[in-house]
Computed example of a mutant assay.
Amino acid sequence: MHTTASHLVGAAWRRSRYSGKQGNCVELAAVTDAVGPVGHVALRNSRFPDDAALLVTRADLGAFLSDVRAGRFDDLLEDA
């Protein structure tokens, strides 16, 4: 599901503490009743903060992060 980040008024966006200052980070925000569909997390590109935002369930995000930690996407890295 997707929307525009500008529609997620009041969302508390955050990024990894490992992100640099280049302005090309992925930011995430928990979605609450006041913001959108509960139980979802919104993702956006920090370079375009009012543009597209992807909404995923917390369960789907958790599964994705587990797969990342397990190395299931390592073949997509340039140095792999």
Rank of each mutant, 00 (worst) to 15 (best):
S19T: 12
A70T: 07
A5N: 11
H40D: 08
A53W: 00
D50W: 02
R58A: 07
D75H: 15
F73M: 06
A29Q: 11
V9Q: 12
D33K: 07
V35L: 10
T3R: 04
G62Q: 11
S66D: 15
L43G: 04
K21E: 15
V68I: 15
D51C: 03
A5L: 01
A5T: 02
D67W: 05
G23E: 05
S66K: 07
D74G: 14
D33S: 13
L43R: 00
D51V: 01
L43N: 05
A29W: 06
C25S: 14
D75P: 03
A63F: 11
D50G: 09
A34E: 13
R69D: 10
A63Y: 10
F48Q: 09
S19C: 12
F73S: 01
G71P: 08
F64S: 01
F64N: 05
S19Y: 06
G36K: 06
K21F: 13
D67V: 01
T4K: 00
V9S: 10
G71V: 13
R44G: 00
D51R: 05
A59V: 14
V35G: 06
D51P: 00
A80D: 14
A12C: 05
A29C: 10
S66A: 15
L8M: 13
F48T: 11
A42C: 07
L28N: 02
P37N: 09
D79F: 07
S46M: 11
L8A: 01
L76Q: 10
L61Q: 02
S46V: 11
E78C: 02
V9D: 07
D50T: 04
F48P: 01
A63S: 12
D33R: 15
G62C: 08
S6C: 01
T57W: 06
N24Q: 15
F73R: 01
V68Q: 10
A63I: 11
R69E: 13
N45D: 15
S6G: 00
F73Q: 02
W13A: 02
V56H: 13
V56Y: 07
S19G: 02
A70G: 03
L55N: 08
H2I: 00
S46Q: 12
V41D: 01
G23K: 05
F48K: 04
F48S: 12
L55R: 04
D50M: 05
V31F: 06
A53R: 00
N45E: 13
P37E: 10
A5E: 07
A59W: 02
A63H: 13
E27M: 02
D51L: 04
E27Q: 14
D74Y: 03
S19D: 04
G20R: 12
R72Q: 13
D75A: 15
S66H: 08
D33M: 05
R17F: 08
A30P: 14
G62W: 00
L43I: 01
V68N: 06
S19W: 01
R72V: 09
V68P: 03
P49N: 05
H7W: 00
N45Y: 10
A80E: 07
S6F: 01
Q22W: 03
L77G: 02
L61N: 06
C25L: 08
W13F: 12
D60A: 15
S46F: 08
S6R: 05
